[in-house]
Design a protein around this nucleic acid. Structure first.
Lengths: 343, 343
DNA sequence: GGAGTTGTCCAAAGCGCTTTGGGCGGGCGA
DNA sequence: TCGCCCGCCCAAAGCGCTTTGGACAACTCC
């Protein structure tokens, strides 16, 4: 079923049918209703490709996922972010098109997407501290929104981010207030912008109390269960072990907990853990009322929603002036923290 | 830059340029080279929408993800599956378009995708024991491939699946051979087809040795860390606790391990665990050489690749006859299993 | 009653590509 | 030398939609 035959059946011109369905005023309410009903009955939906060609709008948002380097797509937060963004796309009538590319052809992928014209804009994931994609996207002139920021050029583009620095500063202060002095940071990969900011927050809190920063207490790497476990096991063997861990993901926290328990210690009594919690769908920090880990909590799914909304607005309004949304994490207190044990 | 202006610049007709770029024989090698070079230099890529409209091929594969019900997209295996499929799509020049829909409009989403013509086929995730989507897709007449099967109608459509039954049968036998007699099954959600098959495998192994099936030893639900933990903690308090756990995911296994350790027991000595391992990118079972958990291992990412390849072949060949690929899981022995402890 | 306005509809062009159906000239066989 | 085929190229139609630029009748207003 296409426009022409539908028009033929109705005894109308394609023009009128198109206008009726798209809500243009040049058609009487009576015919509009008639057309709408006929379209419904025939389960008619305008052909996407034709519509796109005619309007010049792809009605699609691109996500480019490099495959090898940062394991981006297999990062557990990715799925939740996508879910949030996808909800918004669907409601606004946009397709979400995802392209998996080898790491070395990421740049080309953006250029191709642009020149093939199959998306109206792109969402950028997981920016590094210095991210080459920004410059490239600017020369391409394609609308984009970052999930996260790029240190140093924060205001030149639109982004949605959680206030990582403040979150980790607060978490550190929380532990300091409990009397902890040896606090380990089990962070994400150092070149990631979010990890850098979290580290800054941790360091800022220590500095504010005139405490030295011990590099040995900082571990950076992929946020897996093994990471948390290995770091905790290692550090707890030291003569002056940390009394608290600050971890960047729930998986790392789970690993750290295991390391603590392996050492015959009790989490929340002997050793404390504060973690960041992205509120992932399948990896919950207990329940909302009874969290297991004390955590800085911020929904990555909500971040996905906001990114998508921002990008769509930017595309539809044509307004390219950068906009920012900084989400604040909330600190929830669970059973994983307690006052520093007195020797 | 478009075909027309490129042709103009070259002093050729659009026809010839199109044919040169698409490898048709009616153009001399000399001009073909000239055209190719000019296209390269101008960074010309044919407009996707126009191409699609002209050829009638969307060059895209759809994935429809219901949002609420089964938490599908936030399921940790989803990302890995998508990564595998996406690789293949990209290589074959297909877009991956993902649609997030509220649960109650999933059926409509498929019909719309079909009538709007923006995909050439769809990949179906996470089939239930009885899945209404099959009938619907058949009436729509759109090519599709299932990741998994639907009990009872296995041969009517194309699918790629891991041999869940045999995997769990083998795992159960492995534990039985070690002398275990009280083996708990911590399974996925019961109405999922894969969970059903795994349970069948478990039950078949027990029956083969004339052992009774104790329903109390079977837990079905979302495969989270909490699920494994709660089940293990609960069961280990019983007067006749299980001596082994068979879990359906690494997360559940991690939870079970925690439950075991909380009870003051040692995994691999006092209580054994065998788990299924989907080889997720960010959730590894130790290393390939030194697995932590004894596991039935099968890459869900590879399953994604095969699904995609099968679907594309089906689309391009026009051959709708159903094809199946059954992947066998391999049993790897880690440190989580040992002979049943003598009282 | 005539001019202007308004409401409703349509014909046709155009989006950027592919593909059909030739056209033209040079080489080859008879 | 003639006719035919073949290699190379092009004009134009068509994919299914939107949108521009009217057409036509009915209505309003003086």
């Amino acid at each position: 079923m296409n426009l022409k035959t539908l028009a033929l059946e109705l005894g109308l011109s394609p023009t009128t049918v198109s206008r009726a369905l798209n809500g243009y005023p040049e058609v009487s309410e009576a015919t509009r209703r008639r057309v709408r009903e006929a379209a419904e009955a025939a389960n008619y939906h305008p052909n996407t490709q034709a519509k796109r060609l005619a309007t010049g709008r792809a009605m699609a948002i691109g996500h480019i996922i490099p495959i090898s380097d940062r394991h981006e797509i297999v990062n557990p937060v990715f799925a939740d972010f996508i879910a949030g963004a996808g909800e918004v796309y669907a409601r606004a009538g946009y397709d979400m098109v995802m392209t998996i590319v080898p790491d070395d052809s990421e740049a080309r992928a953006y250029a191709e997407l642009r020149s093939k014209g199959n998306v109206d804009g792109v969402l950028i994931h997981a920016p590094k501290v210095e991210d080459h994609r920004i410059a490239m996207l600017d020369t391409l002139g394609m609308p984009y929104v970052l999930h996260g920021r790029v240190s140093g050029s924060d205001s030149a583009f639109s982004w949605v981010d959680v206030n990582n620095k403040r979150a980790f500063e607060r978490a550190t202060n929380f532990l300091l207030d409990l009397g902890h002095r040896r606090i380990a940071l089990i962070n994400g990969i150092g070149e990631m912008d979010f990890a850098r900011r979290r580290r800054r927050g941790y360091e800022a809190a220590l500095k504010a109390r005139d405490m030295a920063i011990d590099p040995a207490l900082i571990v950076e790497g992929e946020m897996t269960e093994a990471q948390g476990h290995d770091a905790a096991r290692e550090m707890l063997r030291w003569p002056d072990p940390p009394t608290a861990f600050l971890t960047a993901s729930l998986l790392s926290a789970m690993g750290a907990r295991r390391g603590i328990e392996e050492a015959g210690l009790v989490m929340g009594r002997d050793v404390s853990i504060v973690t960041h919690d992205d509120e992932l769908g399948y990896l919950k920090n207990g329940t909302a009322e009874e969290p297991i880990f004390t955590a800085t909590r911020s929904s990555v799914r909500e971040a996905g929603r906001r990114c998508a909304a921002l990008l769509i607005e930017q595309i539809e309004s044509g307004d390219r002036s950068p906009r920012h949304e900084l989400m604040e994490a909330v600190l929830v207190v669970g059973q994983s923290t307690g006052p520093v044990p007195t020797q």
